[in-house]
Simulated assay, not measured.
Amino acid sequence: MTTADVSTSGTAGPAGRPTDRTWLVAVAAALWGTDGLLRLPLAADLPSGTVVFWEHLIIVAVLSPFVPRAVRALARCGPRVWLAVLIIGGGSSALATALFTAAFQTGDAITPLVLQKLQPVFAVLAAWAVLGERLRSGYALFAVPAIAGAWLLAFADPLDIEFSALRAALLALGAAALWAAGTVLGRLVSTSLPSRDVTTLRFTVGLPVAAIIVAAQGNPYTVDWDNAVGLGLLALIPGLFALSLYYTGLRATPAARATLAELAYPATAVVIGVSFLDETMTATQWAGLVVVVAAVTALGWHERAAKRRPVVVPPEPVSTGGRE
Rank of each mutant, 00 (worst) to 15 (best):
T253P: 03
G186D: 02
A26T: 14
A29N: 07
V85W: 10
G33A: 06
V198M: 03
A96N: 15
L57K: 13
R167Q: 15
G138V: 11
G239W: 03
Q217V: 08
T248A: 15
R21N: 13
V71S: 00
L159G: 11
T204K: 05
A98K: 05
V6N: 07
I147A: 02
A143T: 05
V313A: 15
R136A: 11
P112T: 10
G149W: 05
E303T: 11
T2D: 11
A177W: 05
T101Q: 15
P158A: 06
L263K: 09
W23V: 14
A210M: 08
V290D: 04
L152Q: 10
R76V: 03
V318K: 14
L299G: 01
G288N: 01
P254E: 06
V27A: 15
F241V: 08
R196I: 15
T284P: 13
G49I: 08
G78P: 13
V198Y: 02
A177I: 09
A143F: 07
Y265P: 03
N227Q: 15
T297Y: 02
L260R: 06
A43L: 14
R202T: 14
M1A: 08
S192V: 05
S319E: 09
S92I: 11
H302M: 01
V85A: 03
R69K: 12
L201I: 07
P145L: 00
G13H: 02
R72W: 07
I212P: 01
A98T: 11
P317A: 05
P194T: 14
V311S: 12
L141Q: 10
L171T: 12
R39Q: 01
S64T: 15
L240N: 12
A43I: 00
P65N: 04
D5W: 12
V114W: 02
A103P: 07
